[in-house]
Design a protein around this nucleic acid. Structure first.
Lengths: 257, 257
DNA sequence: CGGGGTTGTCTAGATAAATAGACAACTTGA
DNA sequence: TCAAGTTGTCTATTTATCTAGACAACCCCG
């Protein structure tokens, strides 16, 4: 995801230290994760030895070990006594975002296995900004919380809002079908398009970390999106939090033809 | 950027603790930043008192104070003895990404003031993946590092690659014009389009934190993009790191007409 | 079959972060 | 003016993190 000047694994500046609010081993772990996610270290590659890492980052070997232990707990690397620490693999999924973004079919080759699970649904007065975007007259909306997993990994957590008058039974349809597209079709809507998407990033909250099986302080990619009918009538407002360490958003631009 | 169940500022779960690699005050600071960035706390609003925050997060008052001090150092809040701590303001910019993404004109209303500064430029053998995307035959490429600021704030850091044969003088043109669009026009290219954009997020490296004036451990939004001629011939490969706390990416979808 | 190099584990000590309590300085509203 | 409530500052103590060194267990190659 990033280039680095100079040789991939050398010339590393010592970690920022003391007073940052981040422990040394955490910062080292994140740096190593960069090398793995960024493709400078591939599955099967051996990491630098603990002594080399300790010297490079200017810390004790035990501190470097703790960084490796954190990555090992995530399943990103595997240590073998006597021989070294190796990258086990990294599954970064591409989530496609475009005019016809679909939750269950956008995860690349393995997309077929993506499934949606409904956590809960409530009828409520939508927050004012949501009501405005959905064009709600009386603010009554159905809010549904869902999670999505693929290939045994938690991918994202979403909050959906639908117009209660237009789609009173959307929650049960979502539960039954496990798909937004199918649930909308069951409500008589055969096609819809993505009107707008805004992307941000921040640290995960405690509950998001729990749902997505992330370590504390992990990063989430946050998208806020509006789906509409082809004629522009708002259907669904949607906030999705993706586990940034597992997902990249692949933005589809219309072709110039 | 996120909704929270229940009342905006109550029902907060205690911070994840001890062993996470994140100090308590850092996690609290990030939670408070969420309330500000997310619009639950507006400029001029008073934060809960230090005692309330300490109790809510299950920490000592001194720890809560340290979180506030971190936000104050960023200029996000301001403490006044005897009266409280107040939100000074938060400027989140929208960076538009679409078919005709332009670096100097995409920052919303205030976009006109965005300026690009060239840090350095070198001629090098492009990394293999970059060479492949640019369709380089002999891998020789011009790499340019730039920063972009707007309204007195650092917005992003970018790494550009151009085909050396096609655009030998792009670096000097960039320096002179301060704009990719203008530099390309000076090279006889009047129009270009965005072919692909991939978005991720991760912690900032030490050098990125320095260039973007971020605290250690801040988050960057990372986009990898390819610009081409309207007929699809690759022009520029581009990796941009945005300060996530100041920028949201606004994705433009083609209209269904 | 060595022997150098690697990870795993233990002990001990030094440094940093968080807790605990107290009180001063200041603001606000009754 | 006064009292309650707020932030600022200080000291002391406890807890967590990092450092330091040593050695065992194990792998791999010559």
């Amino acid at each position: 995801m990033n280039q680095r000047q100079g040789h991939p694994l050398t010339d590393r500046a010592p970690v920022a230290r003391s007073g940052s609010g981040y422990s040394a081993w955490r910062l080292i772990a994140e740096e190593l994760r960069l090398d793995i996610d960024g493709g400078r270290l591939h599955a099967g590659d051996r990491l630098p030895t603990e002594n080399v890492l300790a010297e490079r980052f200017g810390v004790n070997r035990h501190t470097a070990r703790q960084a490796i232990a954190a990555l090992a707990e995530e399943g990103l690397v595997e240590s073998r006594r006597g021989s070294g620490t190796f990258v086990t693999g990294h599954a970064v999924r591409l989530h496609r975002i475009g005019l016809r973004t679909r939750m269950t079919s956008s995860l690349g080759d393995e997309g077929a296995s993506a499934t949606i699970h409904v956590l809960n649904s409530v009828v409520e007065d939508a927050p004012s900004d949501v009501a405005r975007r959905l064009g709600l007259e009386f603010r009554r909306a159905v809010r549904v919380e869902t999670t999505r997993s693929a290939g045994g990994q938690q991918i994202s957590v979403s909050t959906h809002w639908f117009d209660l008058e237009r789609l009173p039974d959307i929650a049960t349809a979502l539960r039954r079908t496990g798909s937004v597209t199918a649930a909308l079709r069951a409500s008589g809507i055969d096609d819809y398009v993505r009107a707008s998407t805004v992307v941000g990033a921040r640290h995960a909250t405690a509950s998001e970390s729990e749902l997505l099986l992330l370590g504390p302080g992990a990063i989430v990619l946050v998208t806020e999106a509006l789906d509409t009918l082809p004629d522009g009538v708002p259907l669904q407002y949607l906030i999705t939090r993706f586990a940034a360490q597992r997902v990249r958003l692949d933005i589809e631009h219309a072709r110039p033809d």
